[in-house]
Structures are given as C-alpha cells and as structure tokens.
Design a binder for these strands. Structure first.
Lengths: 237, 237, 237, 237
DNA sequence: GATGAATGAGATTTCATTCAT
DNA sequence: AATGAATGAAATCTCATTCAT
C-alpha cells in the first residue's frame, strides 16, 4: 500500500478540506461513512493507485474493483465515475505534496527549496507514474497547482536571500523544474531507480547563482507568468 | 502539414534506410508507390500526426482516416495496424532528429550540443506532444535512441573540450536533459509557446563548468549507465 | 430449444467434468451462476445453436446475441470469444453422444453398435448441421473423439461376438461410418427428413458378416490406424 | 495444376455447353477470349482451386489473384463475383465427373457403377476438399446433380442385371453413397490418403445382393425420391 | 484490357457505466 | 449496502467489390 494512503481517513471531500487555504470548507460536513464503507473506500484507492501505476490509466475499473476485493457496484457507489476516482487519487497525492512543502517551509537556512525538490522526487519515485498520469487526466490537477504553488514563492525567496538560488529565477521556473523532475522519474525509475537524483542535482546546479565568468550567465527568455503556469496541463493522454 | 512530413518520399522502409548506420539496407528496394497511393500515404501520416497531437494516441483510426479524406481500408492497406502507423511517425520524427544531430555535429566551436538541445526543442514545439506520445507506444522508440544517441558523445566531448560543459557530465545526462525538455515542451506549449526555451537555458546553465566557490559543485549521484539509458521508456500510456 | 440444451446446468467446465474419464475433475467447483446469468447462458447457447444451424458458423455473434435477447457484452462475458461459444456447443453435443454410447453399451445382445449408429443419427438429425460444423471449428472436436471413441471397441467386439458385424471391421471403420452418416444427415435432412435412416441401413448392411458366395468378400484396403483416426478433422471451413 | 484444369478451353459458358443433355446450347456463341485473356482465366481457376483447397473458401479473392499472378481487376473482369468463380470451379469438376460417368457407362460387365464410385473418389482425393466446399457454396451444385445423375440409373440397372448390386437399391441411394464418399475423402485424406478406399469397399459391400440368412436383409426405410435428391445441398457453409 | 489502390460495411472484442438480485 | 451481470457504443481490423490510372 502506498504510504500516502496508509493511515489517513480521507472522505471524498478531501479537496475541500484542504488544510492550507480553505479551512472554512471543513464546515461542509459529510456524514462520516460507515466503518465498512470507509474501509472499502481505502481499499479502492489503494488498489487504484497500484493498478494505475502498473498498467497505466487505461487499466479497467473492473481490475481495480477486483484488486480491491469489492464489486463493481461498490466502486461506483464510492466514486461516481472513473474520473472521480482518478481525481481523488490526485487529491491524495497533493496532500502529501503539501505536507512536504510545509515541512520544507519550516527550514530557515534557505535549503527548503532544494529539500522540496528532493522530497517530492522521493515521493514520486515511490509511486512511479502515478502523479503525472493522474495529473494528466484530472481537472483536480489544475487545482493542485493552485494549492501547492502557494508555498513556492516563500521557499524561493528564502533560498535566494541565502544566496543558494540565482535571483532571476522565478516561481514558475521552479514549477517547470518540478514537472521536469516528474517526467524524469517516470521515465527512468524502472531502468535506474536513483537516476532522477542526479537529474535533480543538475537541475539545482542550473539554479545556482552564476559567477561573472560563467558562460551564458543571463537568462534571455522570459519566465512563464503565473497565469500561464496555471493553464499548464500534462498531455491529455 | 508538419514540416517533417512535407517534402520527403518516405517508403515504409524509412527506418531501414537509415543513412547513418545501415546504408546497405538501401538495396532492399520497395517498388515506389503509385502516385495516388503515395499521396494518400502522406495524407494519412499528416492526418495522424495532427489527430494524435490533438486528441492523444487514443484517438480512433477512423478519425485519422476521416481527417485524411480516405476510407478505413486505405489506412489499413498502407499501415497494417495502428501501431505500424505510430511506428512510422516515430521513424519520421527520428529522421529529423538525426538531421539536427548531423548539422550540430558539423559545428567545430563546441556549441553543437547546445545547438542540438535548442533545435530538437524547436522541432518538438512545432508538433507538441507528438514525439513523447509516439515514443511511449512504439518499439521504434527503442531503436530511435540507439540511432540518435550515437551523436551525443561526439557533441558532448567537443563541448567539454571547449570548456562549455562541465567535464563530469555524461552522455546519459544529456539524454535525461532531452527527455526533460520534451516533457516541458509538451506540458507548457499550449499555455506559453516559448516557455520551454527558458527551461533549456536553465538546463544548460546546470551543465556549465562550475567555479570553485559554486555551491554543491560536485555531483554526488552516479549517472545512468548507457545500458540503463537504453532501457528507459516513456510511460506506457 | 434443442433437447440437448434443455435441462442441464452446464457450467463452463462441462468438458472437464466428463463423467466417463475424469470424475475427479468434479472437484474443480465453479461457483454456480446467478439465476439470471445462468438463464442468459442457456439462452445464448440455444440461440447460437439455432443461428449457427441456420446460417452456418459465419453468422455473426451479434445475431446470436440478438436472437438470445441479450447484449453483446453479455455474450462476451459468458464466452470470451466466438470460438469459446462454439467449443461449448461441441462439448454439449458430446455429452449427449456419450449418453447414447453409455446406453448402447448396456445392451448385451450385440445390437449396441447398431443402436449407437441410429441414435446418434437421430440426435444429429434433430439439430442438422450443428455437430459437423461445430466440430470443424473446434479444438474440442479432437478431444471429443478421444472421449467418445472409448466406447466403440467395446460395442464393436460385442457385435462381432454375436455375429452381427463382420470380424474384419475395426473401430476406425466405425468412426468413418459415423462421419459418413453425419454428412448424409447434414446434406439430406432439409430435403428428406428421414433419408439418413436408409443410409444407415445400407451402411450397416455393408458391415454385416459376408457369406462365402458374396461378391468382393474381402476388404483389400487397410483400415485407418487409430493414430490416423485421431488426426482426422472436419474440413477447416 | 489440377488435372481437371489442364488442357481445356473453358469459356464461362461451360455449364451451358453441357455435352450430354443440351448440345443445342452450343448455339449460344460467346465470342472467344483473346489468347492472353484466356490464359488469365485458366490461371485464375487453377489458383482458385489451389487456394480454396488449402485455405478453405474463406480465403480472400486477393490471395487468389496473387497466386494467379494477376491483378484484382483482372479477376473481376473474368468473374463478376467470388461466387461466380466458385460456380465455375464446380462446373469444371462436373466436367470430369461426366467424363468418368461416360467411361464407366461404356463397361458392359456390370462393374461400371463400382468403377464410378472408385474413380470419382480418386478425382476428389486428388483435390481434397474442393468439391464439397465448392458444392456447398454454389447454386451450380444443384445443376450438377441434374447433369450427372442421368448416368446413374443406367449404371445401376446394368450392375443389378449382372447381380452385382442388390435390386432394391435406387439411384438416390447411389447419390447418397457418392456424397458419403465425398465426405470421407475430405475428412480423412490429410491423415490417411487412402482410407477412403476402404470406406468405398464397405459401402459397396452394403450394396451387394444379400443372401437369405443375411441379417436385416430388407431395407425398411424408403429411398429419397428423385425430387428430394434434387433438393439436396451441401451445408451452406 | 490490365492493374492494384480505395472503398466501407461488418466482424470480433473491450470497457465505463447501470441495474437487478 | 454490496454484488457482479448486463449493457451497448466504440475500437481495431478484414475483405468483396469498384474504379482511377
């Protein structure tokens, strides 16, 4: 079972209960599920995460139900469509991303950003393929950025103030780096489980302040605006 | 029509006629297609490239046929299966990649590698989503790496000799960078057509030689072995 | 509804549960189908038997589904392929053949073999075309011979001991006669429902012991070996 | 090349030119084909006979055209449909059947009928599967009986007068025997090339006059009327 | 007249979703 | 509430036949 599914009680309002930005949403109270129903929910999410990671999102819902040991009807009682199930998984991974971001933000030595890149990498490497595939198919992805990106400017500013990251790097650059790391993890993990770490090192090297004699010191292209970053989506399929 | 489909006469043996490694294969002569058949072939490839780029590889072949203005039977006469059609598109894009690599290799000032990263980026930006999606579904992808990677060590060595790239970077690192750029292009082009250029700049910055006071100067993680790099595949779906 | 589909509960392991040779296989218990599912299964087999008998095996599965009053999906849930459906029909007819063989074997007056020829004829005449067509397309056919033929030598020996069948007739000769009767039934039933019975009479006459003055008393050609008989198949189409 | 395709010039009116019953039909004159066209016609028939014998009638017309070394257009210029091609093959085999019948009729010792059974068997064994498969799909089959059956009563009467065949056997019984032999040839030839000869021996034994003490001496079932025999068709598929 | 490419209806099979048990 | 069977639209692929070259 993925660690990010292990212990939490996650009713279907997970996205609404987002702890960082919309605590008020907690007021929208779903009646709690019966214990067996909640258990089925967990099983389905766990199974879906495994099946989708192994077979891709084209895996059939029947296989998910079978892996969860429940019937199709139960699956569709818990999640009104395949897409809803995917969205829920995205939301759950986002929870872990937010945890990582919160932890990283607690660092005061300017290493929080680098820490973020590595730890989100670790998380994705533990469930290869999940995030990007899910992201690709989920409208929840869009919201995910919105929740998560709030942490980036803070981490970035701290790193820049400590002289660890060059000052002309922007939040949207960091988002691009995160996407790029995601992609590398998904493509290389099977062949070389730790290759992504080297990619992260090189990526971070590219973000370091440059010395005067450094080649091509200046970035000539403009960064994505945040409005653009919000419109970014993984390939539809 | 994509530029990479524009002018060439591409019999189905395009992969075999690879100019770099197997010139002898040219002896296997497919009789040239009748003019109308060749035209339909081109139309189908063009249509497939558009449809797959817009709708993803899950788009039905019927839609491809309709977009090409031909019947289903014609499509299946030219390409015996959907996969064969995809493979052909992969092969065609590879041709352009090889062209770029050859041109870049002709540079003697050590900028060939940077040139390669930018121009392959341009090519992919012109047909967003194509390469990575195609790659993912095609066994031709595996061969594609093999053909293409042959150029990397040469370009890399030249760049390193000219002091433009740090000496501890390996061919497999460059392959990772190419994958990462592909991913960024696919995700950002719709929202911000040139954002990928900035990513390339940052990526190249990460490959530059480091000065003594540079933070985290050394790469602690080992690069992919070439054997591993060959096993890398885009996510299955 | 064909008589051979009437009353039995036939899980998909019908072939395995063969009562003659592998009683132990009954231990492999398929959980019984839900009542509606079982009903649909029966309906599908009935419909398939009718449609295939009327239109030949080239009839589409869609027509079978329509005749059964169920959707395509249901058909494919019960039988994972058209071939599986055909195999099941073959298996079912085999059950009836085995019943007939068993009953015939119970006779002690040497008439069992003749009885077998007539009753298997009756069964086939009731569902003309079914067996031979099914046989032709089914690997189950091969197994069918193996199960069924076990009864022939016993019946034959008894008939020979009672002086009803000439002693130089072999088991493989009887198999040939059965095939020949099948063919006659399939070709004549529509035009003359009982014509096959006369053919059976003539065939049996050919198997009777010959008197000394009988013309061409001896058989000069050698019978099929049993190994050859096992390789016999109805025409592939 | 099948012997029955070897030397004859057979314009598509072969059926009409039937030498036995309707010589007047020869007055309907098709303009003779150009020599190359006639050659293509022969090639197509030869190829069709081989391809259909090997792969069954489901083999595609394209394969026939390819085997004949001509284009599809040529095939369809010579034969307006696949069915017409099949009908033509049936008609051609009938020619050989008629030859055999004519030769057999020349015998004056009462062995003509037995001779017929053996020689038509030889012919079919040389092209296993052809006749029955073709027959099955061809309306020409019906006509074939009409042409061929004219010889049977004569042969039969002669055999009965010589005491070689029991007097209660009718022409339609002989037709049934012929069908039965056809079926046995098709099913056994691959496994045992000469097994059909034994079947013929047994079949003939069944037609011999019976001695008083013979078991089940009388035939209790009535023969097919000739009207019924004319309606007999091989299974549609 | 010959060619073989194009056609498009139809075949088998899959799967997200609904619904009877 | 849970089950898993039923649904049927859509996907890929085939092939007899037509038609442009």
């Amino acid at each position: 079972m993925p660690s990010w599914l292990s212990s939490r009680q996650v009713p279907s309002s997970a996205m609404n209960r987002s702890d960082v930005t919309t605590p008020a949403a907690a007021l929208v109270v779903d009646r709690p599920l019966r214990r067996d129903a909640a258990q089925n929910r967990e099983r389905l999410l766990t199974a879906a995460s495994q099946v989708f990671a192994e077979r891709g999102l084209d895996a059939g819902v029947e296989e998910v139900a079978r892996a969860a040991g429940v019937g199709m009807g139960t699956l569709y009682r818990r999640f009104p469509s395949k897409q809803a199930l995917i969205d829920e998984l995205v939301g759950l991974m986002l929870q872990d991303f937010l945890d990582i971001a919160r932890t990283a933000s607690a660092r005061t030595d300017g290493t929080g950003l680098e820490n973020l890149l590595v730890h989100t990498g670790q998380l994705q490497a533990a469930h290869p393929g999940c995030l990007r595939r899910l992201w690709a198919q989920s409208d929840a992805g869009r919201e995910a950025i919105e929740h998560f990106r709030g942490h980036i400017p803070i981490l970035l500013r701290s790193a820049q103030e400590h002289g660890r990251i060059r000052p002309d790097v922007t939040t949207s650059d960091i988002l691009m780096m995160l996407w790029s790391i995601s992609a590398i993890i998904d493509t290389t993990t099977a062949a070389a489980p730790n290759a992504w770490r080297r990619h992260v090192e090189l990526v971070i090297a590219g973000l370091r302040p440059v010395t005067p004699d450094h080649l091509a010191a200046e970035l000539t292209e403009r960064p994505l605006t945040m409005a653009q970053a919000l419109k970014v989506t993984a390939p539809s399929r």
